[in-house]
Amino acid sequence: MNLTKDRFGGLLFLLLSVTYGYYAADIPLLPGDRFEPFHAQTLPYWLSGLGIIFSVLLIGLKSDLSSENDVISNSNLLLMLGLMAFTFAFSVALPWLGFPITTSIFLASSYWLLGERRLKMLLFASVPFALVFWLLLTQVLDVYIAPARFIFW
């Protein structure tokens, strides 16, 4: 039995369903709930069971090998991971550096990561964009955006 994409996906789902079912026992119930026909744990247990059945079916059934040809290069995978890392960093930096600075850095670094090397383009497509967008939100649409925490240091 080859470990195809389908079977690998099935194994992952099996693991997820078992873990999901295991943690269903941790859901607190109200006194007397256990004797009710339906309580907070009922659906999670059923879903866990269904998940296990479908996973086993996917692992056991003949796999379609025609779906195996989605070629993704390592460099593109790294690009994607890099962008996700930048997005995560954006969320961490936002309260500290404030909206305009964080957005400018995020956009400029993402452009650079995806291959834009012209300094003018890096700056013009990020800093003015971030400032205009911030002004639009705060001054035109009257949306409150907390100022950077470093200002209060």
Partner: peptide, 15 residues
Amino acid sequence: IKAMMMTVFGLMIAT
């Protein structure tokens, strides 16, 4: 089957 699994997964997230 994959779509059924994803439906169940969506129901799981909803809980």
